[in-house]
Amino acid sequence: MKPDKEKIDNGRRSFIGAAAGVSAAVVAPGVVLHTVDATAAPRTEPVTDLHRWGMLIDTSKCADGCSACVSACDRENGLNLQSKPLGDDPLKWDNQRAVWIRKVKLQDNTTGRITNLPLMCQHCENPPCVDVCPTGASFKRADGLVLVDRHTCIGCRYCMMACPYKARSFIHEKVDQKLTRAPRGKGCVESCTLCVHRLDEGDISTACADACNAEGHQAIVFGDLNDPDGPLRQALRQVPSRQIRQDLGLNTGVRYSGI
């Protein structure tokens, strides 16, 4: 690890700790939370495959009952601005509103052990949603993000049929309120973007990982899968990890340990 990175990250972490009203000491040292690009700035060149963004989620650190990542994502991407259309059935609406990240709680059938984990778009290297999209609106960006180009999405929902992770949402209703950084409209499909607006501004972080760190759990490590010395690869070297539905050979960008 380069010493300058260490310094910078400590500064960042202490800030987050303070912001959350937690003393900086609560945040355990030792795990690097963010990659810091020396040239961080709004980008002026198109993204390349030099980076591939991904995550490691340590399920042993993911706390039962905590949903900080979910609410942070909702705020970050304007998902909390959705409102139930007048007259819709509340139970149906629960299944119709867009969700980018979910808190999933599992119990092992044999041992009874409980596991918690956040589940979102896994940003596959070989994404089934991209394969099936008839117009090419569902696409993989050069830096590994699997995104939807709303300008060419016709709303056929075939990608939702193809996704093994139930990661995608269709916008079932008119959207009145939206954020500038997260456009959203009736009739298109969307899913987790790994906070692409942050990445494009040169800020290597996601709302969910920040929120998890602020809670002091540090279950989510976000970073560059292509950077051998980066925090993500270091973390992946330290703990055994696997992919959800590894059998499908999709080479996901989001990895889990402890499942």
Binding site: R43, E45, V47, D143, L147, D149
Partner: peptide
């Protein structure tokens, strides 16, 4: 440029 290249700042 923005959607595919990630350039938002122009």
């Amino acid at each position: 440029t923005t959607v595919y290249g990630g350039i938002r700042s122009t």
